[in-house]
C-alpha cells in the first residue's frame, strides 16, 4: 500500500516537472505588424508614377482591412488566433499595428485575412467609436448599402493614350463576403524584449496580375464586372510577403 502511494507521488512529481518545463520554454511575445508598400522594388508613394508591363500608372490611394491574425510555429500550426483584431492599413501612413500578446517558443509564420468576416461586414460602422478601424473613415471604407465594408481600395491613374502620362482613372473598390481572402506569410523576425515586429511587404504591382487595367479600370464589385473583382481579390494573397 505504502509502495503504491510512493509510486503515485513520484509519477505526479514527474508529470508536473515535465509539463512545467514545457511552459518555461515559451516566451511571452507581443506581435506587431508594419507594412512596406511597394511597386516591385520601388517604394509606393502617393502621386508617384510606376511602370507596370511598360504602362505608366500613378498611385493615388491604397487602403485595406486585415483581420483574423494567426501566428504559426515552425510546423505551420496555429499558436493562437486573434479573431477580434482589425487593422486598416493605409499606404500613406507608416503605422505599427499591435496585434496581441501570446506565449510561444518561436513564430515562423503568420496568417491573416483581407477584409472582415460576414457578421461584422454587415454591421453598422456607427456602432464603432472613432478611431476604431471599423468606425467611419475618410476616405470611406464602407458602402452605404448592404455590401458592407470595402475590403481593399486602390485608386490611381493609368496611361491609356500611350503618351507616357497617366490620364485615365483606375478605381478598384473591392469587398464582398466571398472575398475574405487568406494570406500566409513566413516570419523571420526575431523577438526583441518580448516584441516581434513583423514587416510585411505589399507589392501593388501584383494586384494587376491577369487584369487588363487599361480597359477594366473601374470596379466597385458590381455584378457587370464581378469576374474582374474576383480576379483582383484572388491576387491579394500574392501581394504580401
Amino acid at each position: 500500500m505504502r509502495l503504491n502511494h510512493l509510486f503515485l507521488l513520484s509519477a505526479l512529481i514527474g508529470a508536473l516537472t515535465f509539463f512545467g518545463c514545457g511552459d518555461d520554454d515559451n516566451d511571452e511575445v507581443t506581435l506587431r505588424m508594419q507594412f512596406e508598400h511597394k511597386f516591385g522594388s520601388e517604394d509606393a508613394v502617393y502621386g508617384s508614377v510606376y511602370e507596370i508591363d511598360g504602362i505608366a500608372m500613378r498611385f493615388d490611394l491604397g487602403m485595406f482591412y486585415c483581420s483574423h491574425f494567426t501566428p504559426k510555429d515552425d510546423s505551420g500550426d496555429a499558436i493562437t488566433s486573434f479573431t477580434d483584431e482589425y487593422i486598416l492599413v493605409r499606404a500613406d501612413e507608416p503605422t505599427i499595428h499591435e496585434i496581441g500578446t501570446f506565449n510561444a517558443k518561436s513564430v515562423k509564420g503568420l496568417g491573416f485575412r483581407i477584409g472582415v468576416e460576414s457578421s461584422v461586414n454587415h454591421g453598422d460602422p456607427a456602432n464603432w467609436t472613432s478611431p476604431h478601424p471599423l468606425s467611419s473613415q475618410s476616405p470611406s471604407m464602407y458602402w452605404g448599402w448592404d455590401n458592407g465594408y470595402i475590403f481593399f481600395k486602390f485608386e490611381g491613374r493609368v496611361d491609356t493614350d500611350e503618351d507616357g502620362e497617366p490620364n485615365a482613372p483606375v478605381l478598384y473598390h473591392i469587398g464582398k463576403d466571398d472575398f475574405f481572402e487568406l494570406v500566409d506569410i513566413s516570419v523571420n523576425e526575431a523577438t526583441v524584449d518580448g516584441v516581434m515586429d513583423v514587416i510585411v511587404t505589399v507589392d501593388y504591382e501584383k494586384l494587376f496580375t491577369n487584369i487588363d487595367f487599361t480597359v477594366d479600370r473601374v470596379n466597385h464589385t458590381n455584378i457587370e464586372s464581378l469576374h474582374i473583382a474576383t480576379q483582383l481579390a484572388e491576387n491579394w494573397p500574392s501581394m504580401f510577403e
Binding site: 460602422p125 456607427a126 472613432s130 467611419s136 470611406s140 464602407y142 452605404g144 448592404d146
Partner: peptide, 28 residues
C-alpha cells in the same frame, strides 16, 4: 433594398458623390 435600416442607410445619400457628396467622419 440595399439599405438595411433607417440608421445605416444615412451613409448612402451622405457619401454618394451625386447626392450629398460628403464623408461621415467629416460631417461629424
Amino acid at each position: 433594398g440595399g439599405g438595411i435600416s433607417l440608421e445605416t442607410q444615412v451613409l448612402g445619400p451622405l457619401e454618394d458623390s451625386t447626392e450629398m457628396a460628403f464623408n461621415m467622419l467629416e460631417a461629424v
